[in-house]
Amino acid sequence: MHYWIKLPLALLFFAAGLHAEPLQKTFSDWQITCNNQNYCVARSVPGVNGLVMTISRHAGVNDRPFLRIDYGSRYTGKLSGAPLQDNLLLDGQRLKPDLKHWEVQPHHLSTGHAISINEFLSLVMDADNLQLLYRPRATISLHGLKAALLLMDDIQGRVNGMSAWIKKGERPAMDVPPPPDFPEAPRLQPVPPALTREETTGLLDYGTWRVNTDRCSLDPQRRQVSVAPLNDKKALLLVSCEMGAYNVIDLAFEVTRSQPYMARGLTLTLPFTPPRHGEKKLELINADYDASRGELLTFGKGRGLGDCGTATRWQYDGREFVLTEYAEEGTCDAWHGSDDWPTLWTSKRDMPPAPEQASTE
């Protein structure tokens, strides 16, 4: 484990602004994810029993900590029972936290108040579990929480400082490295002209029978081929090559819009090595392309329920697709869908121009 305070302060601040390697790890019953901005989120696992605690924090001085306890998810639906605030047990004893600065709902407790978070962590840090009084199976194991938060402190350069959650010290709370620089996404390309009927027919025939798909295991008659414009001269050709119960893997080609067709294979290369994968090349799984924004999405399900897997967003820069967002949920525990998976990579993206207002005159 590295401790940034052992290096010269200016050198570390400089290094922190250049690069942060995303990670996702599990410590006993807690999973932590930190993205390329050193924003970290840790949650208790598994969530199948309906009760989960989540704690997150941004890097730098403006850390915006947030802690929440939830009973019920999008997969469990609304669960019945008395309010959480009166029915939580800590190691079998009724827990009565000070909720003055908390948002209190029947089955959801949350706070972004730093002192309240510190007070709550001091109550639970060395305990075994949180439990719901009227549903004993709804339990949050606290084993691994301390290790996850220590890693969070370390990643954000808080260890041995007053802002640390675990290994506090005398270093001032303001004495922490800033978040790394945001990577810039490619600028949005002009919206390409739509493919004509003749262009579409010719490209679909080319993609079905003539493009080099030696790596495809699917019979040509079972392959799905789709085409979309990249610009006024080139098109994106997607050819399904492997098919499972809930995932389809495509090959992607940049193809000239007119004959004689010239195709160039496109690959998705991540700017980091993701956890559990070991390489930077990413397969196009359940790919979806938005030609109006030059945006390619992938969505690899870990299982049919869609509660775990990998979701990515890529921007076309005129030649290649560049990663703008990467989210991954490595724990398949029926807790949340892809919209809420923790992010490992994020970037500054262009917003589409605002629509013109209709004249009222």
Rank of each mutant, 00 (worst) to 15 (best):
D29L: 02
D29I: 01
D29F: 04
W30D: 01
W30G: 02
W30C: 01
W30Y: 08
W30P: 07
Q31R: 15
Q31A: 13
Q31G: 09
I32C: 05
I32D: 00
I32H: 02
T33R: 08
T33A: 14
T33L: 08
C34Q: 03
C34D: 05
C34Y: 01
N35Y: 06
N36P: 03
N36H: 04
N36Q: 06
N36E: 05
N38D: 09
Y39W: 13
Y39A: 13
Y39V: 14
C40P: 04
C40K: 00
C40Q: 02
C40V: 08
V41I: 13
V41H: 11
V41E: 15
V41S: 14
A42T: 09
A42V: 11
R43Y: 06
R43L: 03
R43D: 04
R43Q: 13
S44H: 05
S44Y: 01
V45W: 05
P46R: 08
P46C: 06
P46M: 02
P46N: 07
P46A: 06
G47C: 07
G47Q: 07
G47R: 12
G47L: 09
G47E: 09
V48P: 00
V48Q: 08
V48T: 15
N49F: 11
N49E: 14
G50C: 01
G50S: 04
G50N: 01
L51S: 00
L51T: 00
L51V: 01
V52S: 05
M53F: 08
M53T: 12
M53R: 12
T54H: 03
I55T: 04
I55R: 06
I55P: 10
I55Y: 07
I55S: 02
I55V: 13
S56A: 14
S56Q: 12
S56V: 06
R57S: 07
R57Q: 13
H58W: 13
H58L: 15
A59S: 12
G60Y: 11
G60N: 04
G60M: 10
V61K: 14
V61I: 11
V61P: 02
V61W: 12
N62T: 10
N62R: 15
N62F: 09
N62V: 13
N62E: 15
D63K: 15
D63L: 15
R64Y: 09
R64I: 07
R64E: 12
P65W: 14
P65K: 10
P65T: 12
